[in-house]
Design a protein around this nucleic acid. Structure first.
Length: 656
DNA sequence: AGCCCTTGTCATCAC
DNA sequence: AAGTGATGACAAGGG
């Protein structure tokens, strides 16, 4: 099924695609007087297509396009395409033919109605079920529908006889203004279109269906056209949407617009409307204007304006549209990939923790530690909290849990040691190596540190010689070859400056104790020995430096954790945003479909109604109204207008 | 030799 | 007030 096929069905189909509008219009004017009463057709004569025709008429397209006689010429589309001049004649003939077929033409709107079916009431109530059945029966949008090959025909057909001359070209205007849109918007929109396609949302199908049946002013369709390959339209719509208040005036789904793409964007430019009122003018003949347009849009409707039944979905759509646009923009900005997002969504659906505090964030995981700590047996006795942390973070964050550095005491709740793998996968080498080195600070951990680790970069000045002896023993081969002197040199190199100083000052206990003992025990230790002032001073410096060293390491770890957590938070937010965008698009699509059904139902029901004389009701004089109990009432338009105004005021009052 | 990274250290502040 | 942690800044060592 091609877009072309579908398009024909809606407005295009009626226009029989290629029929030049000027010819259609001319023919119409000649053959179809504004009022052609007297012609009657029974309900039986009305086939589903007829109903759809009327629907399309109500959609606001020029009635010429939808003339009944026109429909009969559907099969001649190809021929019409080939010979436009001939179509003028054909059209004239069709108009006459329409009259001959006893079509009733609305005096104001020019809509043609199959006349007459006995039994009609001013107040006609139909069950909702019945209406739905009718709707299903009329299920429009045949797959084989034809798309108007000549876009100009559509655009030309837009202006109808009932429209003010100056407004005849306005139907497409909002969309055509897209030529003014910045290129980036166009590009973004195209990107978005591709995204939509990737999501396999069947957007094209649903959209096209709507496109060719929905009234041009349908707010829903207006801003959410997902049909691809319509750069101009898309561009405009996005642009307009960004303008907020103007968004409602545009109809991306309007048949005219959708049919634009291939044909000619340039030719459509002249049709740009001057203001939003043009829409109402365009749709003046439709009784759906009120139903499918936000009330405010109907404010300037002329006498022939359609019923002003409030659109129950209008308000929702308005907000939704704007939000949607913004979301789309965001998504585009960030290169939202729906496919990836969907995949990730499942994986991270529940994971949207945004805590930036490394100490609390589940993401603050010590991956490097996991690897390094395991090798370095990092966690000392004081590394209390680390072990308890069961972070779920599988992310690549190399955030380190300081649990192994018990002495340091930095441990985040979320810290986990199972990040080793994740980090390795990520390849965050700097941190990894860093953490490996960091973990040795706790003397108790040194026993597990790889020997080469210290050889390469030994800053364990505060390590007690005894600890170094056990932890930093050279490889067996070295021991075999090395003499005691070599060992001494090696150990000497392994000692930190403070250790050297302590040895030089003949401090009677290890730096490890000096640094890690609690204050009370430390003081007890000092009291046990007779130490000089120099020794005491050195010991205090060693303790201070040792603690500060660990503090610095922790500080650096925290800093890295924070950065990593922030990065992951950004990723999570992007995923969430993508998911929300997808959901919103889905909701909007559903809403659009519902609106379409309601619209079709309205047309179907209204088209079948007949007064006591068997004549159809004029859309300009009557309107259908949904009752609270599910029934549908036929009420005078004046009454409907009043009610619509009332409902229009309510929201305003609420705002106040 | 210069750059970058890691680590230690100091100074300072806050608790 | 002392002890300790946190952190910016600087310097040294190593790749």
């Amino acid at each position: 099924m091609t877009r072309l096929d579908r398009s024909s069905h809606s407005g295009g189909g009626h226009a029989k695609g290629s029929r030049p509008l000027n010819s259609l219009l001319a023919g119409h004017r000649v053959a179809q007087p504004r009022s052609a009463p007297g012609s009657r057709a029974s309900v039986q004569d009305i086939d589903l297509i007829d109903i759809l025709w009327r629907q399309d008429i109500d959609l606001g397209a020029g009635r010429e396009i939808f003339d009944y006689s026109h429909r009969q010429k559907e099969q001649d589309v190809d021929k019409d395409l080939q010979d436009g001049a001939e179509q003028d004649d054909t059209w004239s003939g069709e108009g006459a033919e329409a009259l001959a077929r006893n079509l009733l033409v609305d005096g104001e709107t020019g809509e043609s109605f199959p006349a007459q079916v006995p039994g009609g009431e001013d107040q006609t109530a139909l069950s909702l079920e019945e209406c739905l059945r009718l709707l299903e029966a009329t299920c429009p949008f045949g797959e084989n529908a034809e798309f108007p090959a000549d876009i100009s025909s559509i655009t030309e057909a837009v202006p109808s006889e009932s429209e003010p001359p100056g407004l005849q070209n306005n139907l497409l205007s909002p969309l055509l203004t897209g030529t003014d849109s910045p290129f980036d918007l166009e590009q973004q929109w195209q990107d978005l279109m591709s995204i939509m396609e990737m999501q396999a949302m069947e957007v094209n199908t649903s959209t096209n269906e709507i496109l060719y049946s929905a009234p041009p002013g349908d707010p829903l369709s207006t801003n959410y056209s997902l049909a691809p390959n319509t750069p101009i339209n898309q561009n405009v719509s996005l642009h307009q949407a960004s303008l907020g208040g103007c968004s409602q005036d545009f109809s991306l789904f309007s048949p005219e617009v959708e049919s634009l793409p291939v044909a000619s964007g340039s030719t459509l430019l002249p049709l740009v409307p001057s203001n939003s009122t043009s829409l109402n003018s365009t749709f003046g003949s439709t009784n759906l204007a009120g139903l499918f347009f936000p009330p405010q849009l109907n404010g300037t409707a002329n006498d022939t304006a359609g019923p002003e039944l409030p659109d129950p979905l209008g308000g929702l759509l308005d907000e939704a549209m704007l939000d949607e646009i913004s979301l789309m923009d965001l998504a585009i900005e960030e290169g939202f990939n729906p496919v990836q997002a969907s995949q990730l969504e499942e994986e991270f659906d529940s994971d949207s923790g945004l805590s930036l505090d490394s100490s609390h964030s589940p993401s603050s995981l010590s991956s490097s530690e996991g690897s390094s700590s395991s090798s370095s047996s990092s966690s000392s006795s004081s590394s209390s909290s680390s072990s308890s942390s069961s972070s779920s973070s599988s992310s690549s964050s190399a955030s380190s849990s300081f649990s192994e550095e018990g002495a340091v005491g930095y441990s985040s709740d979320s810290e986990t040691l199972d990040l080793e793998e994740a980090e390795g996968a990520v390849g965050y080498q700097p941190e990894y190596s860093k953490f490996c080195r960091m973990s040795y600070q706790d003397p108790s951990q040194l026993s597990c540190l790889p020997y080469l680790e210290h050889v390469g970069h030994n800053h364990t000045y505060n390590m007690a010689p005894s600890a170094l002896d056990s932890a930093d023993l050279p490889p067996p081969s070295a021991l075999k070859k090395g003499s005691k002197e070599k060992q001494a040199d090696f150990l000497d190199k392994q000692m930190s400056r403070d250790e050297h100083r302590a040895r030089a000052m003949k401090i009677p206990f290890t730096n490890d104790k000096i640094i890690n003992l609690p204050v009370e025990e430390f003081n007890e230790l000092l009291s046990k020995y007779q130490l000089s002032e120099a020794q005491l001073s050195l010991i205090r410096d060693i303790r201070r430096r040792g603690k500060n060293k660990m503090a610095a390491q922790n500080c650096r770890k925290r800093k890295l954790d924070t950065i990593l957590n922030l990065e992951r938070d950004v990723e999570d937010l992007q995923r969430d945003k993508a998911r929300l965008l997808r959901e919103k698009v889905e909701f909007l699509r559903s809403l659009r479909q519902m609106k379409q059904k309601v619209q079709s139902l309205y047309q179907e029901v209204f088209g079948r109604l007949r007064d006591e004389n068997g004549r159809p009701y004029s859309p300009s004089q009557y309107a259908l109204q949904y009752a609270g109990d599910g029934s549908v009432l036929l009420i005078p338009r004046t009454l409907a207008d009043q009610q619509a105004r009332r409902q229009e005021r309510k929201p305003k009052d609420r705002r106040k």
